[in-house]
Nucleic acid binder design. Structure first.
Lengths: 347, 347
DNA sequence: AATATTAGTGCAAACGTACGCATGATGCGG
DNA sequence: CCGCATCATGCGTACGTTTGCACTAATATT
């Protein structure tokens, strides 16, 4: 009646559980459970004894069982855009590190371009994530809908919530406007925009701010090209620009994110255009690669680390108290001046 | 006695469980459970009725509870190197997509440079991962040790297992040798190597193969620089090379991975060196950015998609049958010839 | 017609943890 | 010396699912 018949093959290591420890210590499981979380009700020596025992046996609590019992999983679902955009790659690194600081783990649900599949989004719910971070530019409102319907807090990063969820983003409109102001000060007069994914608030706002800035100076866009938020898209746009006739040739190109800006730059240079003497290129994001001497991209930098921090703040707050209203945080970006755009004359 | 007193606040959505469905359908929970997985023992009409009910109620099985009962979590722990190296970024994207195809989710445990923290590696065990994929070049043997001690299958990707675990990698030695052969055929005579992280099998093997290739031709390395597996490290190495005297100046630089090679290239060009006329640069990995016109890097490409596939094959096989012996898979890389290295004379 | 088989379903235990409540053992004031 | 508060610990149940076994009723077999 005492012979626990170890269900399966024994070869590896039957993981010790609270029950195991309880048997070893000759106490009840509840005592072990409490002792391990330093419940003051358990006498100090029993606590110490059990702690040592746990240490020696290599006991690890089963987070999944704990969830079942306690309600919180400590898991955050993460939906991410294409890793070919270094902005998202770095966001991932930040998110993992900062989540770990708070004792949270990231369950990565989707990465890459393209919409999120049904089975994938279901995983979000099946694994009882406490909350969800959505940082894909693509049409992921579906994932947000699913979470919202189930009462899972959602925070959108770098993208304003269309329907549900809080969001954290850079002030894209102001950023676009600042880019416009900088280019106008540099006496540029003919402007092209290389657009990312249409219908996404992030890039739409950047364009809107930019155009508003131009409009205030009585100017407007002379070219508007698709860039698909990829390097290749940017390159294609750059090629197109390079072969425009003199009449249409812009003297400044605003690519709505850095990865496209790099493509534009490479294409223009490959076509023999001198940057920034003949044409200025300016991006958005300030990904690490923009700072490389080969690119030296002038760009509007997003405060990525802070954005991730605020996102987690919002998320944990709404996990604590689901009744909290949704919240929108907008952070100011900062223009990073490098050498891909002509500078304002130092008057 | 029948009034389920909905434990918490009701406002959001009390998620339906098998129990809920059972009550609604007027059957036992076991019937629901079986019906939902199309157990042929349940009569077709009951099955259909329950399926509809589940659909209507928006039922989602609790994967965590299932784990507790069934043993498998469907979770794979993932330890990853720095996302500043696009090689790892792309590996992540591949891994997520391919894992999803197999119904597995990635619990991302660590990303970035630096060793893995204790609390982090514990998460690996607490969340009952079925297996673990380790793709960090850093000193993560600790994570491997922990898993091995607990009987969690481990597969190392792009890195040969030192002690435990299976591994999948490119044939780095052969790759290094092939690079040497290519450069020798291009009549290069003075060779520099930019090394990554020392003590990591991956880069060590590349260097060994390269040197062996040189040795067969009676040649040897003339420079050996640290590159730290970062762009910045490569850039620094490139600067150093550029300012060497003529006597020491290499005519070929082999950077042990692409991210460093890009740094070397940018540094050499910034210093006015003509690539590949004066000096050839060759990398390893074939990350997407290497193909950009601005770099046009000749490199030894790793079959990344296949590496991830084999890794998951190995992992799932050992999850099925833990008694399986550890296995090492070595895949052949392929030289991608672009324009950063002088070509062999077309004799 | 009696029994063996099968289909369809329910019961209950198990997984590992947490926690409310009950219990036993002390200490102390009256 | 008894009753009462306090402390330390145990018991039992809950969380949501799976699964072995038992059970009933209908069908097939002899």
């Amino acid at each position: 009646m005492d012979t626990a018949p170890s269900r399966r093959s024994d070869p590896p290591h039957e993981r010790p559980t609270v029950r195991t420890l309880a048997r070893m210590a000759g106490v009840a499981v509840s005592t072990v459970s409490r002792a391990l979380k330093n419940d003051p009700r358990i006498s100090p020596d029993v606590r110490r004894r059990i702690a040592e025992l746990a240490q020696r046996a290599g006991y690890m609590p089963n987070a999944l069982a704990r969830t079942l019992s306690g309600g919180r999983s400590g898991l955050i679902g993460f939906v991410l855009g294409s890793m070919h955009n270094p902005f998202y790659a770095e966001m991932l690194e930040q998110a993992v590190a900062q989540a770990a600081e708070r004792g949270l783990r990231l369950l990565i649900v989707h990465v890459g371009p393209g919409p999120i599949e049904e089975t994938t989004s279901n995983a979000l719910l099946q694994y009882q994530v406490d909350g969800c971070l959505i940082a894909s530019a693509e049409l992921t409102s579906r994932a947000a809908d699913i979470c919202a319907a189930r009462g899972v807090p959602v925070v959108m990063v770098n993208r304003v919530a269309r329907r549900h969820g809080s969001s954290v983003s850079c002030d894209n409109t102001a950023g676009g406007r600042e880019v416009a102001a900088f280019l106008l000060a540099g006496e540029h007069r003919r402007f092209a925009i290389v657009h990312g994914t249409v219908g996404v608030s992030t890039t739409d706002d950047r364009e809107r701010g930019f155009c508003a800035g131009l409009a205030e100076a009585g100017l407007h866009l002379s070219q508007h090209l698709p860039g698909n938020s990829t390097y290749e898209g940017g390159y294609a746009a750059g090629c197109h620009i390079a072969q425009l006739g003199d009449a249409e040739q812009p003297d400044a190109v605003f690519a709505l994110n850095d990865i496209m800006a790099m493509g534009v730059l490479d294409a223009l240079r490959a076509a023999g255009a001198r940057v920034p003497e003949e044409v200025s290129v300016i991006g958005f994001d300030n990904v690490p690669a923009s700072g490389r001497p080969g690119y030296a991209l002038t760009t509007l930098g997003q405060p990525l680390g802070l954005m991730v921090r605020r996102s987690l703040d919002l998320l944990t707050a709404r996990i604590e108290d689901p009744a909290l209203p949704e919240e929108t945080v907008v952070l100011r970006g900062q223009l990073i001046v490098r050498r891909s755009a002509r500078l304002p004359s130092t008057a």
